[in-house]
Design a binder for these strands. Structure first.
Lengths: 138, 138
DNA sequence: TTCGCTGCAAAAGTTTTGCATGCAG
DNA sequence: CTGCATGCAAAACTTTTGCAGCGAA
């Protein structure tokens, strides 16, 4: 694939994802946000660009529990440097980042033991965040 | 919800998932397999029953990388007893099961440190299995 | 017999594609 | 200028739903 052209639309999508860093956005939500910011764009362009951005590694696609559409989030450089993991709260959909040397070592050992290689960028845990746990057990 | 009736269709879907234990099947694939076994069924019934089965905990729903439909797999009792983890090979889509006491402990510690609770049934790692690694680096 | 399950068809929602036009390089 | 990206509309797919009729309990 040849390198992507820097079009207004592509930049607007990236900006939108950056401004909402930490959230998971659907293509439809991106359309809505950009419309509200008076940055008109076609939905198909969003889909096409998101596919490009995922392939380029600038954006991560993930599917949440029981939803039948994809969510996208920006991957910052920091994120690539400091190896860390993600947890998505199944109650409030919050995305938590956490680093854990211990877990990192355990995963490394598991890789060797089982003769596979994990894609560390794709490690996402699901569970309940502390906020939701407190709400449920006050 | 009242308990499910034991209909022919429900049993056929469960049998199909059991016969293909370890694989990830789409609703459409289940339809195809049952048709080939001369066990006619409606696609909407498959969707409805899969939703029931997931809610009952007999079946697990998961979304694979880049695909925009859901995959379903049978959850056996063994699987619930022996806590283990899953890895899906992004090359061949194989589903690997592995146990790892070390990883289990590391995750437990991470839970305490970060004040969240992980849903261990939903822990799925993505990566490359040994077969595909060998193919790529012979 | 009763009420939930099924199957069909239609609707709703998500994602891709064809094609004429626009615009980055 | 040239050719890739865009926008629109239509198509392709996945999933849900309404409703009449079937069948498990």
């Amino acid at each position: 694939m040849t390198s992507q052209r820097k079009t207004r639309q592509r930049q607007n999508i990236l900006d939108c994802l950056k401004e909402n860093y930490g959230k998971n956005l659907t293509p439809d939500e991106i359309l809505f946000i950009l419309k509200k910011q008076s940055k008109p764009i076609g939905l198909s362009t969003i889909y096409r660009q998101l596919n490009n951005l995922v392939e380029e590694g600038l954006v991560r696609r993930c599917s949440l529990e029981g939803q039948n559409c994809s969510y996208y989030q920006y991957v910052d450089e920091e994120c690539l440097d400091n190896e860390h993991y993600h947890m998505i709260c199944s109650s409030c959909s919050a995305l938590l980042h956490f680093q854990d040397e211990n877990l990192k070592k355990a995963l490394f050992k598991a890789e060797n033991k089982n003769h596979f290689i994990l894609n560390s960028q794709k490690i996402v845990f699901y569970g309940k965040c502390s906020k939701c746990l407190k709400k449920e057990n006050p």
